[in-house]
Nucleic acid binder design. Structure first.
Lengths: 367, 367
DNA sequence: TTGTATGCGTTATCAC
DNA sequence: GTGATAACGCATACAA
């Protein structure tokens, strides 16, 4: 049943070129004069089992260091253990050329948190343009090389994720994702943040507020609208929602003035990829020659597009992308470890800005 | 030697939580009525070996699809002796908070090229602040888990890298790194690019040029100085090098005027982290009330700091960081595959800019 | 053309 | 406390 060591290995091609093979536990064992299993035990620092003599432990550790031993992640994982690798998968390039919608802020948090927990990161490039098997269903399968995986991007196919949750593979989506029962996610608490903005406007005396949003079904949008409505209710305000795909059509100078005459003293816009809602709102107010914040107050539910980030600084809130990335890693790590999951919502930070001020009491209309 | 299937498996704990097991090749084989090996062959679409009958292929494919078979990456990588992973190691955080000296531009190229070659990326966080084993010597050992590794950053310990080259572990340093015999690297061709800038100035009629550089021994600096001297020689110009740690001390209005009176009509500054040389040069020229490019021409050997990237756009060259990242991956991939190494130098792109113009012939001094 | 046998490096169990 | 030994799921010489 056994074969002489001298016999060429079967079922395997020789290693390409005479590259020095990575040391294996077996070689560490030989050098330390123990069995391979002992090496595995020693190196599994998991449990400080006293079942290993200090003498042996020392020898093994020394041998491992001398040989520069590094565990094979594939083997570890195959043997149903873990490999200290956390995957990061996005359906668009992780590092896009247009830094506009890049995941950089998230990755800062992801890297920091992963580092502090001793995880390395595997960036799965399967979905990058030109990537091998881009869009192919098996592209997602590769993430199983890691102990768990983070998913970023707005359009990760639900059915692919469903498989992971069914199998119990630790997966965390960055951004709320409720439609898939059982999928873990972390997200910004848009609802609360929006409610805070409404409360801020209420404190300033505004009684009638309008929300401008694009026609979109993304959770990020609906969360804001929910927060808006809850905010109105909580503060006893009235308001409306303008929901459209054609801002220019809807937000004309005439309508702005009409709304204002009707008692609307504050407008809030949701953040979108292009900043379209905010852009349209600002343009319309300007066209209507309404003074901000003298006659009307403006607020942005998120961060402004970079080209109009300052002057004026919009009242609103900032999405803590870094913290979100860190939270994602924390959640993923707890899933991997089987620990109870932490809070998935992270708070946004209120930004006072300069586009809101006391309501002009003379403009109060009927409610 | 064999054991009954009914017997509980040994050497293995039960799967945590009753998660559904994924189908394996063996089950596909059973359903298709073939052997596991055949399944493996069929699914290895790698080679369109005609060694499989269409009939069998069909059955296997059908069975695989019906079961929703997805290959286990850990297993295939274990069996294949490589894992399609390329490491990325930097001694500072890969995603620093200060985007100033971030590796983002490199990573864009790295990701693209890695994706197009079917590699995934492992970002080693060992060196990140707070990272487990930050700074520890064995932190670098972990990179061996990949098929090869990219190193970025200016201060990767030479002795650590020496080990990799000794073992034949594929390692590529981004940035010239000659002091370590045998270490592969890719770098921008600063010398040629600098020479081009000198040639440009020569064509404009300048005969006497001065180089301003910080007191630094980095290859990026010395390459530029070399290109500067070679450029002078090739064009038959004269010039000097101002090398100092204290720009303010050296670059005074008085000295600028003195140099100018002495026939210096063009100044070139090297690019540094802070943009100090360029900053100092611009300030000094302004203090000396010298017109640019009327009286003196200025050039920057690299890219300007973002706060003064425009107005005026410096004559000089841009470092193709994206391309450099891609080139690094190409080189690393060829090392991994044992193919001949490609060209390590990537060309910089000349940037005309607006800070250089025809030499003022009346100012020609003695050479 | 397909099946058989073996090994990849690791973990985990069981005897010693 | 330590050493055999059996999987993990897949790939591949080699036999049939």
């Amino acid at each position: 049943m056994e074969h002489p060591d001298a016999q060429p290995r079967r079922g395997r091609s020789v290693a390409p070129r005479g590259r020095a093979a990575r040391p294996r536990q077996a070689e560490v064992a030989r050098l330390a004069g123990v069995s391979q299993a002992t090496v595995s035990l020693v190196l599994a620092k998991k449990q400080k089992s006293i079942t290993i003599s200090d003498e042996t432990r020392r020898k093994v550790l020394a041998a491992a260091r001398e040989l520069g031993y590094v565990p094979d992640p594939a083997a570890s994982r195959l043997a149903a253990a873990h490999n200290n690798l956390l995957g990061v998968f996005s359906f668009t390039a992780t590092f896009p050329t247009e830094v506009q919608h890049s995941y950089y802020p998230f990755l800062v948090g992801v890297e920091q948190e992963a580092a502090s927990r001793g995880y390395d990161l595997v960036l799965f490039t399967g979905s990058s343009p030109g990537g091998a098997g881009a869009g192919a269903p098996e592209a997602l399968g590769r993430v199983r090389l890691a102990d768990g995986c983070l998913f970023l991007g707005r359009h990760i196919p639900t059915d692919q994720l469903r498989r992971f949750v069914a199998e119990g593979f630790p997966a965390v989506h960055i951004g709320r994702r409720d439609e898939l029962e059982g999928l873990s996610w972390v997200g910004a608490d848009y609802a609360s943040a929006t409610q805070d903005v409404i409360a801020h406007l209420a404190r300033l005396g505004h009684r009638r507020v309008m929300l401008v949003r694009e026609d979109d079904e993304a959770p990020a949008s609906t969360d804001r609208e929910r927060g808006f409505r809850e905010g109105l209710a909580a503060e006893g305000l009235t308001g409306e929602v303008v929901r459209t795909d054609d801002l220019a059509q809807e937000l004309t100078a005439a309508r702005m003035r009409a709304w204002h005459d009707n008692g609307v003293t504050a407008f809030v816009a949701e953040e979108t990829d292009t900043g379209g809602a905010w852009r349209g709102l600002v343009a319309a107010v300007r066209a209507a020659a309404l003074d901000v914040p003298g006659e009307v107050s403006l607020a942005l539910l998120g961060s402004p597009p970079s080209d109009l980030a300052a002057d004026p600084v919009p009242t609103g809130f900032d999405i803590p992308r870094r913290e979100l990335g860190a939270a994602a890693v924390r959640l993923l790590a707890s899933l991997v470890a089987g620990d109870p999951a932490p809070e998935p919502l992270v708070a946004c930070t209120f930004r006072p800005g300069t586009t809101s001020g006391p309501a002009n009491s003379t403009a109060q209309g009927v409610s």
